[in-house]
Design a protein around this nucleic acid. Sequence first.
DNA 1: GGTCGTCAAGGGGTG
DNA 2: CACCCCTTGACGACC
Length: 321
Amino acid sequence: MTIIRLGYVAMSMELTNSSPSQTMTFKQFQKLSDREAGIRKLERIAKSNLENCLRLLKHNKGNDISFFRFSSRLIPLANHEALEDWNYLSPLKEELKALGDFAKQEKMRVDFHPDHFVLLNTPKKETLKASTTTLAMHVRLLEGMGIDPTHRCVLHVGGGYNDKEKALERFIHNWMYTPKGIQDAVMLENDDTTFTMIDTLYLCEKLGIPLVFDYHHHLACHNDEDWEKDWERVVSTWDASPLPVKMHISSPKGEKDFRSHADYIDIDMFFTFLKAVQGSTSQIDCMIEAKKKDQALFKLMEEIKKRKDIEIIDRSTFRLK
DNA sequence: GGTCGTCAAGGGGTG
DNA sequence: CACCCCTTGACGACC
């Protein structure tokens, strides 16, 4: 019997004034006459983001939620090339450790999803360098928290560049030049426009990377692939991971804007997926990507509780009968 | 207190 | 090659 654990992304719609993504744009930073004062301000914003992030984890604990994606904007301008000399880690040591200690103490699965400008298959050297720098920042933050970075960063395969086969091969080529510390942190996700489940499986099996299956993306971009037929292969990409199988769950906003995320999760679509994977592995962690964030998780659980074919474990975890 | 424009990134599509 | 749209949340300006 497969345990299903739900998580949500980055911010809460319930907790007020708890943004972990407050920011200062580079344009604002440049306007400041005193660069050192600007850096101190960046540090104050980062501290507030980390403190709010800890509040979010405590909010999660209070609601039995033990699966959470950190915002990738915790440290504003951390990977900006004009601030390469800024050591953002040392002034944030305590806050990072507090976050990691709490997550470990409460046995929470926490991870990141660096945004879609992080591209490992780009043909441009500068873009690859910036992507590697951004990934290195994510790994450093995890290390600062005292959390093993293994399989904590979900990425897309990248751009198609008018030649999908070549773009896949370039991923492999660039991967060989990617530091091992970053390789170990990466998971790959099928996307909604270019790289299907089978395309992504090709890379994952070849390079030993866990595949995060996004069912909504699959419905948007599948090339007539039968996902159920190859689901076992997806599960196998997690064999060597210390973490359970992970997937993304979201629902289309509408027919016209099918690829956009709806406010909440369509329970019927979710259960169509769950029924098909039932029994395939001991646990699946489902990251809810909905506009209403934690409220979407709570609403989904309310609907799930009404069903007769499930057994509730806690406020974010259940099992199919 | 809503609403709109701006910020930042790379890819992708159009002309 | 030029342009604009995609996406995200924050935030300033405006009435």
